[in-house]
Design a binder for these strands. Structure first.
Lengths: 336, 336
DNA sequence: AACAACTGCTCAAACGTTAGAGCAGAAACG
DNA sequence: CGTTTCTGCTCTAACGTTTGAGCAGTTGTT
């Protein structure tokens, strides 16, 4: 690996001159001829600035951490794409972390920030993480932006318009003529679940539709949670004719289980999910979904982290543009 | 952020003493009392070694890069999990890179290695990447291990037992009584496609079954490729009664398209896929699959990279333990 | 008693980079 | 012509860490 010193020797100038030219400092004051020699030498030696040297000197790594609960999840991969694109455009790199069950977030984050591996972080906590464990993390002055959740003593966040998403999904079923509309929701303490809940309720209220309390389950967002929800809801009397599922993974599970139970979708039961992903297209029947803009969340979160790093500004943003978008496929139909 | 100097000042000793104690150097020669003071001071100040300082001095980052073509792919996320687990156990961190269509691998890798951001890399190239573009990368002495492919002037690789996987899948259909067994394969130049192909052919040959040449398509591994394959194969006369799909994503697409075309699986057509993932469980019908051990590939790749970094040894490994494993679900049945 | 060997530390240099200060020589100005 | 200003560089310190060398003081050996 060639260093600045190697380039300097080859071009017959000092290290500082090379540094100034190659990092194009604003007031480099170097003659065109010398500049030319330096650039040429650097090219010949295939010089690349050493990351550690630069980071040590400047106390900046140009890296932002992205910590998500589960990289397997199709939704988070969309988010990651957005984060990567934004970071790349701004000359940053994304370092991906996991905050799964084993290491509930805290340690990873403290390490990444504490060791100076990243300048800041975008952090999506899993639903299983107690906010209490985060309190001390977030009160440090580190540039951390919360994704899809927020915190009382807020530190900056980027969230989706969950309310609107659930509302659109519910309204879709209402417009098809459904009245007995159930809601397979996430865990009660989940930030997004709370917001989707209000959307669902508001849509029903606006239409003057009342449903039994048991029409809402609050089990969780996983495939298995969806399976469980199907059984609970279908055991009710009267049965719902339509279900709004708060998460696409749960919807996939719910749909599979309906199939197994001999419940025909959409003939016997309409299913609409909040979230869209390629997995929703490939179920049978393909899932009607409300596309939430996870890609944009990723972009916005990284932009927000970088702004925080570079200017110190914090903000709480809700992605409303582009808005949640209903994608009608084949899992919904008028009730019979 | 507390530095060694801060800890030293608080404990009333020199920086070197602190460094030796905290990085527990083998021959630190520090009294128990001093050691105690140092550890205590470090704890109080919440000291964490600065990444850049350490990396600069030691010319080691303890980071391995993992570059995969597409982080959205459920298979690669499994691989990533394995890579992460292995890295964590050995005190390394994984830096995830993308080698998608836009930036065909070369630049990313050259940067990560050239700037000293990583000590080595595990690299899975997409099927669309020409091996020629990699030649110069791999001839550098950098510790790069190829994943699911290998290279003539080999630099170290970790691959799955693709041959065996395809063989098991094909044999499953044979054992159910199928004779007209088609194969929806990846692109001709794909390393894995070539190997899966031999497995398929060998299984047929061993059973004394001959099929038309057109029974193999070589379109690719994506969902859409799978859809196309379904149409091509079903246009043949006689129609195949069973299809081995070389990739789970393609299988998902193929299955969906069959559905759309009114072809009943497994009544009219059996489908078995090489690869298993959670997406295969949640199709309808659930896909019979040969589970390939992607998790193990990830682990092994990282272990191999680290070995290369630390001892210089290179190796070409094929994962045979655990072996590919047939998971029978509901997309296969005897022919009618 | 003289010296070696060990113990328990400290000093200082180095990794590659950036950036303020400095310094010759040339050009501009009075 | 003497002074100032500008140009085009170089010198040097610093970021936080590791590590070989060094150095008092103590213990052990002859």
């Amino acid at each position: 690996m060639a260093t600045l010193g190697d380039v300097a020797a080859r071009a017959g100038v000092s290290i500082s001159a090379v540094s100034r030219v190659l990092s194009d400092a604003p007031d480099s004051r170097v003659s065109a001829a010398t500049r030319e020699r330096i650039v040429e030498a650097a090219r010949e030696l295939n010089y690349r600035p050493n990351f550690a040297g630069r980071a040590l000197k400047s106390a900046r790594t140009q890296v932002v951490g992205l910590v998500v609960p589960d990289i397997t999840n199709a939704l988070f991969t969309e988010l990651m794409h957005g984060a990567e694109d934004e970071a790349t455009e701004r000359g940053y790199t994304v370092l991906l972390g996991r905050s799964d069950d084993v290491r509930p977030g805290g340690e990873v984050i403290a390490r990444l920030i504490g060791e100076g591996r990243v300048d800041g972080m975008a952090l999506q906590v899993g639903d299983a993480v107690q906010p209490a464990g985060l309190r001390d993390l977030l009160t440090t002055q580190a540039p951390i932006v919360l994704v899809n959740s927020s915190n009382p003593g807020h530190v900056g966040s980027v969230t989706l318009d969950d309310h609107q998403g659930a509302l659109i999904a519910t309204r879709h079923l209402l417009e098809l003529g459904h009245q007995r509309i159930a809601f397979a929701n996430g865990l009660p303490r989940s930030f997004t679940a709370k917001r989707r809940r209000t959307g669902y309720k508001l849509a029903l209220a606006a239409a003057g539709v009342r449903v039994p309390k048991a029409y809402e389950t609050r089990i969780g967002y996983t495939v298995d949670n969806g399976r469980t929800a199907l059984h609970r809801l279908m055991a009710l009397d009267p049965r719902p004719t339509g279900i709004v599922v708060a998460n696409v993974n749960a919807a996939v599970g719910l749909l599979g289980e309906a199939r197994k139970a001999g419940i025909r979708v959409p003939d016997d039961l309409s299913v609409v999910t909040v979230h869209d992903s390629w997995t929703a297209e490939n179920t049978w029947p393909p899932l009607t979904a409300v596309k939430m803009q996870f890609y944009t969340v990723g972009r916005t979160a990284v932009r927000s982290v970088i702004r925080r790093i570079e200017t110190g500004e914090t903000s709480d943003e809700v992605i409303t543009d582009p808005p949640p978008e209903l994608v009608v496929r084949e899992s919904t139909a008028p009730p019979r």
